[in-house]
């Protein structure tokens, strides 16, 4: 098994091109549900293109970390995406890392995002970073535990292997452990992508923003990389959630028809999941910041219970 260059390039292109679309769909559908017309589905592409063309303004107090953070965030998300099975069961970089590496890369991106918020010494950025880290401290264990729950069933932490086992016979889709892990991972998805019960992606209100607070000082192509990296990360998490728990239609071979079918099913699953996120965002109010740990600790408890029930109920 060596590096498959076409697969590598194709998956990179898919990650980069599909992720703004997902963000755009979520924004558009959310607006529709609230009886607004909303921005067009492909608006994020235009935003990115515009930001990439523009000059950037950097605070004179900022150090090199400020400029490095967007690149680190962008490339760590992209690398994590290349280790995640999207369309085929064998992701191009699966040789280089498993689920732990994916979680670690996402954590690295978040670390630099928080540093980038702190670096220009603006009050809002620091506040956003501190909030982001305190939420991540609870969300990350829940993410790990839910992935471990399925990893135990598959006997491997390799995401490609997990998906392959999940496609085989004897995999119980409705096992309680899987349902609990799915629910926990969904809450983690909402928290990590800054969705409404945890963070409001559409606000610039000082008291409530988390993700936006860290991006306040960024402009030009740095902002574009930050936004793009965040949407790639969102796509990666969604892919993990949908492909591990609903491993339908992933291509096992490399023939064109397999890949086309896999791509169609993948896009359908991601859009369906986005619709779920939109529904949750629309029917829920944003939680008070001090109530967020309650929600996340519920996710953590669910994930732990899921892990324990794999031993109790003996999946496989």
């Amino acid at each position: 098994m060596n590096l498959n260059l076409p697969a590598f390039l194709l998956q990179t292109a898919l990650l980069l091109l599909l992720s703004p679309l997902v963000t755009g769909c979520i924004r558009n559908w959310k607006a529709k549900l609230q009886n607004r017309r909303g921005p067009r589905v492909w608006q994020p592409y235009f935003d990115l293109a515009k930001c990439l063309r523009k000059d950037r303004v950097i605070s004179e107090h900022a150090s090199w970390i400020f400029s490095a953070a967007p690149c680190v965030l962008f490339f760590s998300s992209l690398l994590a995406g290349l280790m995640t099975p999207l369309v085929t069961t064998s992701p191009p970089l699966s040789l280089f890392g498993d689920a732990l590496a994916v979680v670690g890369l996402l954590a690295l991106g978040r670390f630099f995002l928080a540093l980038g918020g702190l670096d220009p010494a603006s009050a809002f950025g620091g506040m956003g970073s501190s909030r982001e880290m305190s939420i991540a401290a609870v969300a990350e264990p829940a993410l790990m535990l839910s992935i471990f729950t399925v990893a135990i069933g598959a006997g491997s932490t390799d995401l490609g292997r997990i998906v392959t086992v999940a496609q085989g016979p004897g995999w119980q889709l409705l096992a309680p452990a899987h349902l609990m892990a799915f629910a926990a991972l969904f809450v983690v998805l909402l928290a990590e992508t800054g969705r409404i019960p945890v963070d409001n992606p559409a606000t610039h209100l000082e008291l409530t923003m988390i993700h936006e607070a860290m991006l306040l000082e960024y402009s030009g192509r740095d902002l574009a990389l930050m936004e793009w990296g965040a949407s790639v990360k969102q796509l990666v998490l969604m892919a993990i959630l949908s492909n591990i728990f609903v491993p339908i239609g992933l291509a096992t071979g490399h023939s064109i028809s397999d890949l086309a079918l896999g791509l169609a099913v993948f896009v359908a699953k991601i859009l369906l999941l986005s619709a779920g996120v939109v529904l949750v965002e629309t029917v829920n109010a944003k939680l008070r910041l001090f109530r967020v740990p309650d929600l996340l600790s519920a996710a953590f408890v669910l994930a732990t219970l899921a892990l324990f029930s794999t031993f109790l109920f003996g999946i496989k």
Partner: peptide
Amino acid sequence: SQLVMLFAALMLVLQLLLVA
């Protein structure tokens, strides 16, 4: 047995929601 397990697990989840 899968159904029984599923419903029992849901009972447990509901109990935890009740606690919170």
